[in-house]
């Protein structure tokens, strides 16, 4: 992870939603990675989508009305 780059994660209700979001972001060409939900956020065993914080609006726009996002968190 590059130190200067700031990352955020989008949290979803289920892994199905995460995979759906992943597919949409891939298609939209927005850099992202599916990662385990960081322990600082939740002790649940789930996964979330990490992206560059500067891309937050693009992520929001791409997913709007297609996948409900539970919440955004900055890392």
């Amino acid at each position: 992870m590059n130190k200067e780059e700031r990352y955020s994660v989008a949290l979803f209700v289920s892994v199905g939603h995460v995979i759906k979001a992943e597919k949409i972001l891939k298609k939209a060409g927005i850099p992202h990675k599916v990662i385990p939900v960081p322990r600082s956020i939740s002790s649940d065993c789930g996964v979330c989508v990490r992206f560059l914080t500067e891309d937050k609006d693009r992520v929001k726009a791409a997913l709007s009305e297609l996948v409900p996002i539970n919440e955004f968190r900055e890392l």
């Binding site: 289920s14 892994v15 199905g16 995460v18 995979i19 759906k20 992943e22 597919k23 599916v34 990662i35 385990p36 939900v37 065993c45 789930g46 996964v47």
Partner: peptide, 21 residues
């Protein structure tokens, strides 16, 4: 096991099942 963990194999299993849908 799909969706039961955050490791790559679990995520990959979830991807396979999503592709079925």
């Amino acid at each position: 096991n799909p969706g039961r963990s955050g490791h790559r194999l679990s995520i990959e299993a979830a991807r396979v099942i999503y592709s079925t849908r």
